[in-house]
C-alpha cells in the first residue's frame, strides 16, 4: 500500500516535469514578446527593456530560463510579469472561489451523471434510455458560452434576478445565513453550466458499466434471493459499477478548468479560469505556467485519491 503510494508519487513527479517542460516550451517558443507595454512602443527606452529582460531572465539561454523558472516555481518566487505580484498570491487569492465552483460542478456531474446513467442502464434499449442518451449528447454539444448567455439573458432581462459575480452588491445582508445563501445562489448557475458536459460523460460511462454489471451472475443470485429491485440495483449493482464514478473525480478536473475559462468570464466569477484568460491576454508567462502546473498537480492527486478510494470499494483491487 505504502509502496504503491510512493511509486505513484514518484511517477507523478516525472509527469509534472514533463508537463512543466511542455508548457514552458509552448509558451516561450512561440513568437511575440511578453513586454507589458507592447513590442514596438517607441516611448520605452532600450535600457528599460533590457532591465525587464534581465529581471525575468529573458536574456539567458532557453535551458537556463527553464531552470530558473523551475527554481522560482518551487521556491514561490515566481512573479507576474504584468504587475510584479507574486504568482502564488494571485492564485491563492482565487483559490476559494475556484474550489467552490469546481467542487460544486464535480458534485453535480457525479450525482446527476450517476442518476441519468443508472436509469439509462435500467431502461436500456427502450425510449427512456434513448431519450436519456440523446439528452447527454445534447449536454456535450451545448457550447457553454451560448447557454450561459441565454441563461443570463432570460434571467436578467425577463426575471430580473442578480446572478453575476460571487454575491449581490449594494445590499445589506441582515445576517450570515442570508449572505451565504446569496453566495450559494450566485454559485449555482455557473456550476450547473460548467457541469453539463461532465454530467453527460459521467452518465455515458456509468450506463455502460452498469449494463455490464447487470449481466453478471451475482445480480441473478441477488434477484433469486427475493431482494427487491431497489436493493438489487443500489446495493448489488451500483457498488460494482462505481469505477467510472471514482475515476471521474480526478479526470473531470482538466475539462472543468478549461470550461471555467469561458464560464467565469461570462458570469464575472473571480476564479482561476478568469485569471488564466487575463494572463493569456497579457502574455503573463509565469502565471500561465504556474496555472498549468497547479491543475496538473490537482489532477494527479485526484487520480491517486480515486485509486485509493477504489481499493476501498472493491476488495479485489490490491494496491501493489
Amino acid at each position: 500500500m505504502l509502496s504503491f503510494i510512493l511509486r505513484r508519487l514518484g511517477l507523478s513527479i516525472i509527469l509534472l516535469f514533463l508537463i512543466s517542460f511542455i508548457s514552458f516550451f509552448i509558451i516561450t517558443l512561440t513568437p511575440g514578446s511578453p513586454y507589458p507595454w507592447g513590442e514596438m512602443n517607441p516611448k520605452i527606452s532600450p535600457e528599460v527593456k533590457a532591465a525587464f529582460r534581465k529581471k525575468f531572465h529573458l536574456d539567458l539561454p532557453l535551458y537556463q530560463q527553464y531552470e530558473m523558472m523551475l527554481h522560482d516555481l518551487f521556491t514561490g518566487e515566481l512573479r507576474s510579469m504584468k504587475d510584479d505580484l507574486p504568482v502564488m498570491k494571485k492564485i491563492t487569492d482565487r483559490l476559494p472561489a475556484t474550489l467552490a465552483l469546481n467542487i460544486m460542478a464535480i458534485l453535480f456531474s457525479l450525482s446527476f451523471g450517476t442518476l441519468l446513467g443508472l436509469y439509462g442502464a435500467l431502461y436500456r434499449g427502450n425510449w427512456k434510455d434513448m431519450s436519456l442518451s440523446f439528452l447527454s449528447f445534447l449536454f456535450i454539444a451545448l457550447p457553454g458560452f451560448w447557454i450561459s448567455y441565454l441563461l443570463v439573458l432570460t434571467l436578467v432581462k425577463y426575471v430580473g434576478i442578480p446572478i453575476l459575480g460571487t454575491q449581490s452588491y449594494g445590499i445589506e445582508f441582515p445576517n450570515h445565513l442570508t449572505l451565504w445563501l446569496d453566495r450559494l445562489w450566485h454559485l449555482m448557475l455557473p456550476a450547473i453550466v460548467l457541469s453539463l458536459a461532465g454530467i453527460a460523460t459521467q452518465s455515458r460511462y456509468l450506463r455502460s458499466s452498469m449494463i455490464e454489471t447487470l449481466r453478471e451472475n451475482y445480480i441473478l443470485t441477488a434477484r433469486a434471493k427475493g431482494l427487491s429491485p431497489t436493493v438489487v440495483l443500489y446495493q448489488h449493482a451500483l457498488r460494482n459499477s462505481l469505477r467510472p464514478l471514482i475515476t471521474g473525480i480526478g479526470m473531470l478536473l482538466p475539462s472543468l478548468i478549461s470550461g471555467s475559462v469561458i464560464i467565469e468570464t461570462i458570469f464575472a466569477y473571480p476564479g482561476m479560469g478568469q485569471l488564466g484568460y487575463q494572463a493569456v491576454l497579457e502574455r503573463d508567462y509565469p502565471i500561465l505556467i504556474t496555472l498549468n502546473m497547479i491543475v496538473a498537480t490537482m489532477v494527479l492527486l485526484g487520480n491517486l485519491f480515486s485509486d485509493l478510494l477504489y481499493a476501498l470499494v472493491d476488495p479485489r483491487v490490491r494496491l501493489e
Partner: peptide, 18 residues
C-alpha cells in the same frame, strides 16, 4: 501528461501566443 492539461486552456494559450 497530456491528459493532465486543461485542454482548452492549453489551446487558448498557444493560439493566443501564435
Amino acid at each position: 501528461a497530456f491528459l493532465c492539461f486543461p485542454t482548452f486552456f492549453l489551446i487558448l494559450t498557444a493560439v493566443a501566443l501564435l
